[in-house]
Simulated assay, not measured.
Amino acid sequence: MQNDLARILVSEEDIRSRIQELGADITRTYREMGTEEIVVICITNGSIMFAADLLRQINLYAQLDCIRVCSYQDDVNPVSEPEIVDNIRLDIAGQHVLLIDDILDTGRTLERIVHVLNDFAPQTLRTCVLLDKEGRREVGHEPDFAGFTIPNEFVVGYGLDFAERYRNLSCIGILKPELQNPPEWC
């Protein structure tokens, strides 16, 4: 699979190191707010690996729930209005909530989910993304915590996919241009 990458953008070691830093930053932020417990909402499927590794670095009590969103009309083009396919089950009213996603691209998915979650009346709602893609933002949402700022390239690995492939790469890389069109295996 790694042979399908034009180049590695973020190494496994850099991911591991940055997640430790993010975990410490998140822990510190919530403790400064006077809380020892948060509710983590993971946007599936892309952020599962990131959320699992990040949760182990957050030194707070944490409840976990997932929300599933359909954000792409095909494998590379985001839809204008992301659709909530499966909503959360936890009661987050009055809770400190941390929403985790793999990548902040146009911002539409995160903006939509933040709007939906705010309807449940959390005490606070912060966002954390592994990747913040430059030059693609269509809405004004900025994450509270971000792992890496990346260029406007098509990336895969560490949870990010193309046609449900490459999620299990331990690094994040730029997919070769000739593989960004639907290949034979789609």
Rank of each mutant, 00 (worst) to 15 (best):
F120R: 14
V139I: 09
D86Q: 15
L160R: 00
P82K: 03
D161K: 06
A146C: 12
L98E: 03
V76Y: 10
S71F: 08
N45M: 06
V76P: 07
N45T: 13
V114F: 05
D86A: 15
D119R: 15
T109I: 07
L131F: 07
G135D: 14
D102K: 04
D65F: 06
Q57V: 02
V85N: 11
Y158E: 02
V79W: 00
F154R: 05
R89I: 12
D75W: 05
D161E: 07
F162P: 02
V97F: 09
R137H: 15
L64A: 11
A51E: 04
A93P: 04
G159K: 05
G159R: 03
P151R: 12
P122A: 08
L160E: 00
T106V: 13
M49H: 11
R136P: 03
S71M: 12
D53K: 04
P78N: 08
L99K: 04
I150T: 10
N59C: 08
C66I: 06
I103R: 00
A93Y: 05
E142I: 15
S80W: 06
V155W: 01
I84M: 13
V155E: 01
I150A: 00
D102S: 11
V129T: 12
V76M: 15
Q95W: 07
C128R: 02
V139D: 13
G94H: 06
L130G: 01
G107I: 07
D101W: 00
Q95F: 05
I58T: 06
L98S: 01
C128Y: 04
F50C: 00
I100W: 04
H141I: 13
R68A: 14
Q95M: 11
V129Q: 02
V85L: 12
D101G: 01
D75S: 14
A52D: 10
E153D: 14
D53F: 04
V85C: 08
C66L: 13
P122G: 10
V97Y: 07
I88N: 08
F50P: 00
L64G: 10
R112Q: 15
E138P: 06
E138C: 09
C66H: 12
G135K: 09
G159V: 08
I100A: 03
P82A: 09
A62W: 00
L131I: 02
N87E: 12
A163F: 03
E134P: 02
G147Q: 02
Q73W: 03
E111Q: 12
